[in-house]
């Protein structure tokens, strides 16, 4: 029996040949969520389906965090990506963390990276968006 060798940082990151995020979509109004909802916060509907979130988007806002809680490595670029109409909270990775390189409105795409391997040999995979 094959053992699981990779695990995503969060359950809405889908690994494999074509890593992407998935969202829970309200079948009535189309509102999307990355976590479970008892009813849609927009229309109170209770039927949901799972949809793929586009891997490319544009950077709608960002900050460069240089002071954070203990254990959080700094600096890092945090941002909000408009991925084809679905807003995603993410780090902006593979870029110099300064306002010369990170620009509002710049096109970005999903990228994954390793968070390390645990005692059972399972590798955790994180995601971010990088300039493209």
């Amino acid at each position: 029996m094959a053992t699981k060798t990779q695990i995503p940082i969060v359950d809405y990151l889908v690994l494999g040949d074509d890593p992407h995020l998935e969202a829970t979509e309200c079948t009535s109004c189309g509102a999307r969520y990355f976590d479970r909802r008892n009813a849609c916060a927009s229309c109170f509907g209770t039927d949901f389906t799972t949809v793929d979130v586009p891997t490319e988007g544009t950077l709608r806002s960002f900050t460069i965090v240089t002071f954070a809680a203990p254990g959080v490595p700094v600096p890092f670029v945090a941002g909000i990506v408009d991925a084809g109409g679905t807003s995603v909270r993410t780090n902006i990775i593979n870029v110099e963390p300064d306002d010369e390189h990170v620009k509002l409105g710049m096109p970005v795409r999903l990228a994954t990276y390793s968070l390390g391997t645990d005692d059972d040999g399972v590798e955790a995979i994180g995601f971010g968006y990088e300039p493209c």
Partner: peptide
């Protein structure tokens, strides 16, 4: 989440 998300998935 398998790790802290603050600083890894935005802030």
């Amino acid at each position: 989440a398998v790790a802290g998300v603050d600083g890894r998935i935005g802030t």
